[in-house]
Design a protein around this nucleic acid. Structure first.
Lengths: 189, 189
DNA sequence: ACCTGAACACCGTTCAAGT
DNA sequence: ACCTGAACACCGTTCAAGT
């Protein structure tokens, strides 16, 4: 049905299908039997490619982590001035927080150990990135870190609100700009 | 084992056991068969008290929502000056964000519909409460709302970081005071 | 090398039968 | 009114057997 032809399936095919299911229905939708049906194969065959369901989830996460997170930092880093980078980061984040269904699903599944481990790496990297920008702007390291934690918390909080109370986030471009500016100034001395 | 005597079980007993399991092992630990074993009964008997597992979760959430959230707002509301209330709210929230295992588990399960519904009620209430304080302090309603959204986002973000990257949050009282003050000033003009 | 099909374990749900 | 015990469905996992 989903898989035309009957070429052999690769681990990558399974990981991609898992990522789609994750975005659509959350972690619980990453179920081997339904995925096998969608891929037109049997669940027995799954165990040739992966040790177990946890390994499938890890593979899907690795794909997503590389594609998603790296891309954002690369885009933002193309800006020269650190203040501009910080502002651009928040604009990007507030625009997209509500739209990355995979990240929303992951935040909602933060109690699964492999997901917790990855979210932790991402959180650390984001905090360190924002703190670095603030240091470049001349802020002492300790203060930069505290403020970076606040900044990253705002991001995660927006993500959370986008999921549980989306109407509380600004709908118009105008309102969104206000929020971006307010958030930006929040982090400066 | 857990249940001495062999008094009859009430729905309340099941809800309380579910809440404990939720705090200890997350939503997936709220499983009827293991709970039945812990309560010294059979899973068949569970269905006398509840329609299904979702109803059990809802009952556990209702218990927690009333005990937890109402208590915080009541405590904070005992302060007279709105600025003091806001400051106290953040102090409370930053101290306890890392310690409420049920709330952490719920945030991690925000993709389940009944949990999403409750988290949404709580988020709305928190935003409205903070916005109200800011209005009392003389802030125009629209700005108060935007800032309240940022404030509540910071709270949810702290909660998230407390779960996935706890060492990023301040460990000493001194650092925590800095964070409380920084957060507090963030919300003021 | 890769897949199938049957088997088993675990948990949610139903239900007839017990007290 | 409340509980038991057996039954069934669904999904994860294993494995012998196929190509």
């Amino acid at each position: 049905m989903a898989q035309e032809g009957n070429r052999k399936l690769s681990a990558e095919d399974w990981a991609q299908a898992a990522l789609n299911a994750l975005g659509e229905g959350g972690l619980s939708a990453v179920a081997i039997e339904p995925l096998a049906k969608r891929l037109g194969t049997t669940k027995g065959s799954f165990y040739w490619h992966f040790k177990d369901r946890a390994a499938l989830i890890e593979a899907a996460l690795a794909t997503w982590e590389q594609l998603g997170t790296d891309a954002v930092i690369a885009e933002v880093d193309s800006e020269a001035d650190p203040a501009d980078r910080l502002h651009r980061l928040f604009a990007h984040v507030i625009d997209y927080a509500a739209h990355d269904r995979v990240e929303l699903a992951l935040l909602a599944s933060a109690d699964q150990p492999p997901i917790a481990a990855m979210l932790r790496r991402i959180a650390d990297r984001r905090i360190e990135y924002v703190a670095g920008l603030l240091r470049e702007m001349g802020m002492p390291a300790a203060e930069a870190r505290t403020r970076a934690v606040v900044g990253v918390s705002i991001y995660h909080g927006f993500n959370h609100l986008a999921r549980v109370a989306p109407e509380s986030l600004p709908g118009t471009d105008e309102q969104r700009k206000t929020l971006v500016d307010a958030t930006f100034h929040t982090l400066l001395p």
